[in-house]
Design a protein around this nucleic acid. Sequence first.
DNA 1: TAAGGTTACGGCGATCGTAACGATC
DNA 2: GATCGTTACGATCGCCGTAACCTTA
Lengths: 299, 299
Amino acid sequence: MNLSQLELLRIMQESDFNLSKAAEKMHIVQSAVSRQLQMLERELGSPLFERRGKKLLGMTPLGARIMEEVAVIHCAKKNIQTLALDFLDCNQGVLHIATTHTQAKYFLPVPIHRFKEKYPGVKIYMVQASPEQLIDQLHSRKADIAICTEKVDEDANLVVKNCYEWGHAAIMPKGHPLCEGEITLARLASYPILTYNLGFTGRSNIENAFNNVGLSIDITLAATDTDVIKTYVRWGMGVGLIASMAFEPLAETDLVIRDLSHLISRSVTKVAYLKNHYLPQYSQHFIDGLLLAAQEMQA
Amino acid sequence: MNLSQLELLRIMQESDFNLSKAAEKMHIVQSAVSRQLQMLERELGSPLFERRGKKLLGMTPLGARIMEEVAVIHCAKKNIQTLALDFLDCNQGVLHIATTHTQAKYFLPVPIHRFKEKYPGVKIYMVQASPEQLIDQLHSRKADIAICTEKVDEDANLVVKNCYEWGHAAIMPKGHPLCEGEITLARLASYPILTYNLGFTGRSNIENAFNNVGLSIDITLAATDTDVIKTYVRWGMGVGLIASMAFEPLAETDLVIRDLSHLISRSVTKVAYLKNHYLPQYSQHFIDGLLLAAQEMQA
DNA sequence: TAAGGTTACGGCGATCGTAACGATC
DNA sequence: GATCGTTACGATCGCCGTAACCTTA
């Protein structure tokens, strides 16, 4: 057994159990892959791949169980490499951030800008995705850290740190009836609603607030990002329910914002990373910077 | 980087950083070890070993950190091998049990005998040691499971299952004053005491019982095993405080036993194994058997 | 028949062992 | 000078790539 054979197992899984694809990713020829897998199976004494004829279809139960250990080994191996690079030059490297639209646009610009000034040698890659996808990205080590509000607490393999707390707000065009008088859930529910997609930016809290008092809302439009919501609110399609930090008073003088903190329970945006995944020092500093920026924002 | 280089790192640490010893354990010549370590260090870009001149003295901070990952990899690799063997023939293999004298003599005979009947193909090795040593044995993978009463709860890397609960008892020769009348801590404390070594078989509970009421005891003799205590009790050296299951009424008619459950808080014997360490099926069955035997004993 | 997988064979490179050398106590 | 580590060199063995072959959609 050796590391490249185990790596091969991983690649095979990522390549639909197709030898040719796996070979390409490993930069060797197909026959070499075939041989290595056979040798590994012979060494372990049992087949690891389910086959029909010669075609590989998937892992056997044994193979699947072994893949868990392979994942552990892969992670540790990567850690060793990161560790060594970090030790060589802790001001150089790559940082993969996975986050949602709201965080990328309304929270991250300041901390990322500061970080870039301090660590010009670190390349930042940002991926934007849904909360579920973010977590997948962490697990597949495509992202080093994820910043989001939802889903992240449920995973025991993640280290999760609270960043900042925020609430929702309603936005509407100037002159809309809701601009005046006390805002209630009932009044809100009487208008068409524009808000985030399921699983995004505290959408579940919005849902719950109305459900808890037996109101149902008519969601005319659901989007992953606030800008789309604003656009359609401007077109008079209804009332927008957005994260309050996603409203920029200076730029959006045609809209009115009304706070809903007393009606919809507040959310917490968190930063998360894999427990077993070694983060280079600059990444740890980046997280520190996030927490600091979050504190400043709260104050 | 490859598995044998990482294995080499482990072996080096176990060999006082002596190339010759490490080479012997790896069944290769010294020069090969030297080269492999150099190649690894070159690949990672930093020295992993602290050196004075040419002599290797220990790990650098980087090296030490990397060793943590190496341990993870080693564990996962062993798991893969165990997994494959277990799958090939789940009735064959080796089971290393680490335990204390008391458990080995008074609890384990029944479950081990039963296990041997069901799994004649499994070789059982038993190591007897102190609770601290047991845990070390688990970590160094010299033992698969540990059975003992103390220390085992403090380690987050262990899976711990409660086996059975038991209390202490006092033993004394027939005719001793303590054979008659109500037993109290004060009465006990007025005699020389013979009991277990610190860290063994609920010794701390004994300590606490007397300390809590402000009594101090004169421990004439401390031993790791009950038989030594009994021997000296027979010689009239004092009162023995032992685990009550360590008294065999039929065989020891010259001694009197008096229960102390109401005076000294009861202990729980547990079975523990490493969280990340894969146990073959027969080992899991062995643990089931332990728990069963423990239940029967309680009833 | 094209695509995927296996088998056979020749060549290259990684790693080993022998052995001589250097350093350190 | 004995022990320990490094360096040099030749030999071996493992692994790759080419290519022919088998199997199935």
